[in-house]
Amino acid sequence: MLPIRAEAVSYVAGGAAILSGVSLTITPGAPMLILGPNGAGKSVLLRLLHGLLRPEAGRITPAAAIRGAMVFQRPVLLRRSVLANLRYPMALAGVPRPARVRRAEAALAEVGLSALAGRPARRLSGGEQQRLALARAAALEPEVLFLDEPCASLDPAATRAVEEIIRRIAARGTKIVMTTHDLGQARRLAGEVVFLHRGRVVECAPAEHFFAGPASVEGAAFLQGELLW
């Protein structure tokens, strides 16, 4: 699947340009954090890269229907047990039954939900739900995992737990591509940064370079907390 290349990608919704001429390449390695103020187009970019949206102009390769796996800001859990939630996408992906069972158990253990396997998924707490969503995506063993603000509605403790899981998934060699508006989180997780502003990629840099001294005025203003839109 990797590298995933976006070339001059534009996206329009309701007559307004959300993204214009975005180019970037996703290669194996440390997590890629997509940063930018609200409305910069982060979520749309993630959906384009994953394959949920089609670009208005430009192209994304490889030209698969769906690239990698994705976890949404608000986890979409099926009205089924925790275990059934884990197995459902694996069954769709054609994972053989014995492997499904094994991977589901491993994924539950990794996110610390083994004891809740039989519980209705939608009765879990917000943090547990997001951990389950992560486990569900990770159990697919995707090459690349897209995370759209996975901690946006979580408290600090739950956020730390989710970050820990993300680090472990990344350590296994899964490429993480993640949006966040939380600079602290970006510093903790990022290997490389894509800085998005008003639908354009303003900077694409290794994390330490970006945080040490952004090349763009917008990037600098963002790090100062002055760029809100």
């Binding site: 949920l52 949404f72 009205r79 459902y88 769709l92």
Partner: peptide, 20 residues
Amino acid sequence: EALRSFGAGPWRAVPTLLWD
């Protein structure tokens, strides 16, 4: 979105929706 992300088309979504 989630079902499409899992690669389920409308036909596959029908039994899922009926059950859920």
